[in-house]
Design a protein around this nucleic acid. Sequence first.
RNA 1: GCCUCGAUGGUGGAACUGGUAGACACGCAGGACUUAAAAUCCUGUUCCCGAUGAGGGAGUGCGGGUUCAAUUCCCGCUCGAGGUACCA
Length: 961
Amino acid sequence: MGKNYDFGKIEQHWREYWQKNKTFKADNTSGKPKYYVLDMFPYPSGAGLHVGHPLGYIASDIVARYKRLKGFNVLHPMGYDSYGLPAEQYAIQTGQHPANTTERNINRYREQLDKIGFSFDWDREIRTNSPEYYKWTQWVFIRLFNSYYCYKAGQARPVSELIEIFEQQGNERLHIAQSKQLNFTAQEWNGYNERQKQEVLMNYRLAYLAETAVNWCAPLGTVLANDEVVNGLSVRGGHLVERKMMKQWSLRITAYAERLLQGLETLDWSESMKEIQRNWIGKSIGATVNFEFAAADKAATEAVVPPLEIFTTRPDTVFGVTFMVLSPEHPLAMEISTEEQLVQVGKYIARTKNRTERERQADVNKISGVFTGAYVIHPFTKKQIPVYISDYVLMGYGSGAIMAVPAHDSRDYRFAKYFNLPIIEVVSGGNIEQEAFEAKDGILVNSDFLNGLEVKDAIKKAVEKIEESKIGIPKTNYRLRDAIFSRQRYWGEPFPVYYKDGIPYMLDESELPLELPEIDRYLPTEKGEPPLARAVNWRTAEGYPLETSTMPGFAGSSAYYLRYMDPHNNETLVGEQANEYWREVDLYFGGSEHATGHLIYSRFWNKFLYDIGKIVSDEPFRKMLNQGMIQGRSNFVYRLNRKMYSEYLREERNEEPVEGIPQGLNIPVFISKNIPDREKFTDPVHVDIHIVDNDILDIGKFRDWRNDLSNVHFVLEDDKYVCGWEVEKMSKSMYNVQNPDEIVEKYGADTLRMYEMFLGPIEQSKPWDTKGIEGVFRFLKKYWRLIVGSSDSDREESVLPFDENSPTPSELKIIHNLIRKIEDDINRFSFNTAVSSFMIAVNDLADLNCRKRSIIEPLTILLAPFAPHIAEEVWLMLGHNETITYAEFPKYEEKYTVESTFEYPVSFNGKTRFTLSLPLELDSASIQKAVLEDMRSSKWLENRTPKKIIIVPKRIINIVV
RNA sequence: GCCUCGAUGGUGGAACUGGUAGACACGCAGGACUUAAAAUCCUGUUCCCGAUGAGGGAGUGCGGGUUCAAUUCCCGCUCGAGGUACCA
């Protein structure tokens, strides 16, 4: 190897070596302790990787390589989440099969990933669109279909067991997850025909087909899950989404709400991440209360109307109820309305129905509603209470009806003011003339048996009383909704479902995988059926039609971390032994944007698979780190837009014009950033960051950049054109996209890796900025020079032999300090400070011109996780035949960090007075003695005795007199 | 609105359990080497006062507090990022 740091040659060599020797292949049987470190697998998009993608991969790779050096058997796999909308949209436009574009994109991703030198075990690669993989996605679905959730057992149970129960005792006194309350006896059940039985069972299955209100996205031609919709628009593409009733497959994730919430406590995730999931699950504890309808003319003459059930978290405010509100979709809405009000009510309901989610959300502050003419009876005061309908009450939460307490709920307050309804204060402490008092503290007033109680106690008492009077029960509600699992798309997993007489049945597990069929076009049929309906002969061998929807994006990613444990097992999702060994992901890297999607679905699937005894850990991801996003750093040039610069100077600033400015605006003029008053007469224009270096524009390249710019004029400062900059999203249209390949080409993968880590804390979002990259590059070059032992006069191509002498104490101190620091930093994922520590250590060693083998060896091992290629190369030069990957991480020995003396500033009544050099080994008593002596002799103390002497190790001594 | 996190030089950031704020790097300024460029090395670089010295003062978004000692802990604000929202 030559004297220069030829990163291109070094990196290519080791890339090939690792691949050929399968250096990072993980073993499923090993006596070593295991460590499973995982990155969220990417969706292979057509744009390829930009520098933001590898951020998390580099961090996880450092940990993976570090753990190997520490003697762990490390599982560090990678794969592709290869089903998804963009490939299908592209297919619709171009007619190209999504499988082809996906394959192409994956190859490009792989090429880019390889260049950075990750230690992935590629033998375990998985793709969610390969039949060998989605076979198991379909398998999980079948198992979900064949399971129900028993709250008593606190786990999923097989539906076959449920059928037995029904046959013997009907569904009485069962505490199980369900879509709606059904009541039947064993006799009734046994009398049902097949269709009726299947319909009943659908009410309990964990994967079920039901008519549900869905997010329908017409432009995409499909339904979307709640987490795929933001502000009434689709996350992908930003299309309008409407609510619609449709028959769809759903997953009963709500059954797991409480366990998903409780499980968070056991996880080592960031507080904000847990909080996002807690909010999404949205637990609220309260009670349901039934309000009987007053016997108005209508109700008295016709069939008995059931009582109005409401849910409240504030049963303590029950005496403040002055009206009731139903959601417009409430089944009783029309039924209870009086003759006079019926027309009004009908109109109101029709109007709200026609509004999209987005419109509805936009007018959140507009009050609307209508009186039904009906009254309910207050269960305690027996007074009549009017019933209204308003769209501020949602059918999807609680029972779709509320008791309104305007004094203590701001929405009820607004409604009451608008319709001029009474407001009764029942909790003291606020000013209800002005606004609702929503705080949960204060003393109850105007509330009969609750008077004088604190809110907390009043809630308890009220619930007791409600239960006692048999008008309601304590109830916990969750905001979490069941996950809608059908998509009317082509590029996804087919459901292993067929229909017989319109009733859905599962394929036999032996028939899996049900492969995605070929179709001629990727659009819905003329009849509006999903694309799969175009497939020729899309039916079972017996001729039954197959399901035409496909599964959503989160299906394939919900259990992929399990498949990595045992990716080639044809018998089962994951073999028992493999699962016993790897158990769960120890460290998971990914973006926080998946908190309400993938991360919650995965936890749900994992808990289900745990329940059915398939896996041994009930949480999938023990520790989670969220890498920040890397934003773009855009550059701007400033184009003259209003007045000529010279005119401006003459007229307004009374200065002579700058030389060479053309008279007229017929050619574009660009003004450097710091020319006075520039912003007054220029517009910023994005300029490609590749023709800007440290904010200085390369004028020649700029002229070549676009045809219309060849003839332009510049106003410079110090002979330079200085560009402005701003942090924006990394995007093609802002000319600020940086590909990792370009950096690898110019500086090498090791520099890219260390620089991305050096940029700042891993969890923080930050703009990509190449300014500092030279510093890291210089560091690696310096390290290389230290290894090869260069000096200016030395022009030979050979490398100097290493110094075999024993190290000096100061050399040992450098290396042992570094060992301790790097180990600490990796353990707390502080990679940026680790990089800094390397720089300091190598600088110090270079100053000492230390090329001792005994120092270089541990230094190189420490560096290996960060800059693996150069470390391998050096390892080879040190005479090792084995790859550095499985070397032993050096041990830290404390004694080498100890200096013989240390300087203490001594502060005297808070003021720093003098500095004292003391041996560090002294205990605090000896230090006190030494300080006292010193102070007496220098007459600081005069004749006083110090009250206390505070000694802070290695820092400072304080003396208070 | 509610929840979570954050704010430190010209810039990215460091300071781990309160203990010499600004490590490390970029940038900038000056210098060495070179015919020159590249590369490399050295010195300085929070701000203010002071003579370019010695020295002194201020300083971690703002205002208070606890402490011998606060970027760090507590209270009250301002601004920013993310999450979430008629969820009763």
